Amino acid sequence: MSSYKGHSVFALLLSLMFFHSPLLIALTLIGANIPDFDHKFKKDNVYKLIILGLIVFISLYILKLPYLIGLIIVFLGACFYFSEHRSFTHSIFGVVILTSAVSLIVIWAFQLVTSFTNIDNQYYLLAIIIALLSFLFLNRKLLMVFLPVFFISVVIVPFFNINYLEIIFASFLGLFSHIVLDSFTPAGIKIFAPLSSKKVFKQFGLVCIFVLVIVAMLYQGPFYYNLFENYVIS
């Protein structure tokens, strides 16, 4: 199984343990594909990301609109440009930084569009923003499957109120799932890069998966209790 397929499947399984909204599931899947942008064969995409950020920054600055989102996109591209493969972007520090950047892009884009439009259905608006984010980070072959399934899910699944903390958590879960899965490879990951070259391997991954399962059970406990109460006890 290719790298992007493996990371996507793993992230999908994790996201289904935590979320019911297709928006959060999609954001987790996208996040799982982000760290590998530090690979040399993706340098062209990094250049495009930096150029896009500059275009967004200049355009919003000219229009006298909040332009920090453009700088965040440039910063994101710079992180990949200066990072060696499986170094900073595959560390816990990198996951935190990338989570912050991706979450800010989604949240600020959402706030920016809602500030000067009269779109009533913010659920669909957020879905469009997440779909646009997928164009930046998903493999083209994966994108052809992701987009139709995503939009069908958005239409079929009932609306979910999504807060900013859930957006941050979904982004983190996707990014973190990437380094967890990479810890099972023979090369392992430098968990504290760039401060330390210490590597962790499958033992780290197994512990993380165990912890994630426990957290998911606690996170979804109230939901499953309500189902049990409504459909079993009653």
Rank of each mutant, 00 (worst) to 15 (best):
F210P: 00
I62H: 09
L27F: 15
G205V: 02
G94N: 02
V113C: 10
L181A: 07
N45S: 14
S59F: 09
G77E: 11
D38N: 08
F204P: 06
A26D: 09
F110V: 03
R86M: 08
V56I: 15
F19I: 01
L138I: 12
I191A: 01
Q122P: 02
Y4M: 10
N161D: 11
L13N: 07
K40V: 14
L29H: 02
Y67C: 04
E166C: 00
L175V: 11
L173R: 06
I30L: 10
Y124H: 02
Y123H: 15
F10W: 09
Y224I: 01
F192M: 13
F210N: 03
I119R: 06
I167M: 09
S183G: 06
Y81R: 14
D182I: 10
V95A: 00
T89Y: 06
V106D: 06
I34L: 13
V106Q: 05
W108V: 05
N118P: 01
F204M: 06
L76C: 10
K198V: 10
V95K: 00
L68E: 11
L227K: 14
I34S: 07
E84G: 14
L212T: 06
L23P: 01
F150R: 13
I92P: 03
F210G: 08
L54P: 00
L165F: 15
A216K: 06
L133N: 03
G221P: 00
L63P: 00
S100V: 13
G188K: 04
I58Q: 03
K198L: 10
F169G: 02
I209Q: 11
I209N: 12
I167S: 04
H85G: 10
L112V: 03
S234Y: 14
Y164W: 11
L12R: 02
L173C: 06
F41H: 11
F88W: 11
A193P: 07
F80E: 00
Y225A: 09
L133F: 07
L71K: 03
L143E: 05
S15A: 13
L49D: 04
S2P: 15
V95S: 01
A32M: 13
L68H: 12
D120P: 08
A101T: 11
I55G: 00
L227V: 14
L126E: 06
K42Q: 13
K198Q: 10
I105T: 05
I25R: 04
L23W: 04
L212D: 01
L112G: 03
